[in-house]
Amino acid sequence: MTGIVKWFNADKGFGFITPDDGSKDVFVHFSAIQNDGYKSLDEGQKVSFTIESGAKGPAAGNVTSL
């Protein structure tokens, strides 16, 4: 699925993605970002991701920028 990064705190390594389908915002951890180098996201960035079952509920996985 796709969405827009609502916010991401690079110091803490997590944030939230707002899915394009209008569903509830999804937690994203830096370890789910699939790019080389520094793993961070920018507010407003368009991303593709999967929904994984995290310890505290749904979380984004396999996050790639579009």
Rank of each mutant, 00 (worst) to 15 (best):
G44S: 05
V26F: 04
D42A: 12
Q45L: 08
D25E: 11
I51P: 04
A55W: 12
K12G: 05
I51Y: 10
G22L: 06
M1T: 08
S65T: 13
I17A: 01
T2Q: 09
P58V: 12
I17W: 00
T18G: 05
V63E: 01
K12F: 11
L66I: 12
V26K: 03
N9H: 09
S23G: 13
V26H: 02
I51D: 02
K46E: 08
Y38R: 06
I33F: 06
F30K: 12
S31K: 09
F49V: 01
G13T: 02
F30P: 02
Q45A: 11
D21Y: 07
S53I: 12
G15E: 01
S31A: 07
N62V: 08
I4K: 11
P19K: 03
N62S: 11
A59K: 13
D25H: 05
T2H: 08
G54I: 05
K56R: 14
V63D: 01
A60V: 04
G44P: 01
F14T: 03
V28M: 05
K56T: 11
G37Y: 10
G15H: 00
N35M: 15
S48Q: 15
D42E: 13
N9C: 10
L41K: 01
S48M: 11
F49P: 00
F14H: 06
D21E: 06
G15P: 00
T64W: 11
E52K: 09
K24H: 12
V28H: 00
Q34K: 14
P58K: 09
G37Q: 10
K24V: 12
W7T: 03
D11F: 14
F27V: 03
N35V: 14
Y38N: 13
K12E: 05
M1R: 11
Y38V: 12
G37R: 09
I33D: 02
G54E: 11
K12V: 09
Y38C: 12
V26A: 03
P58W: 09
T64G: 06
I51F: 08
M1Q: 11
V5D: 01
S23H: 07
Q45N: 07
Y38L: 12
T50Q: 09
S31G: 06
A59T: 15
D20G: 05
D42K: 13
E52G: 07
I51A: 04
V28S: 01
P58Q: 10
H29N: 04
F27H: 02
P58A: 10
H29F: 08
F16L: 04
I33H: 03
N9P: 02
T18K: 14
E43A: 15
E43L: 13
K46W: 12
K46A: 12
P19S: 04
T50L: 10
L66P: 07
G22K: 07
Q45C: 05
A10F: 10
I17E: 00
K46V: 10
T50G: 05
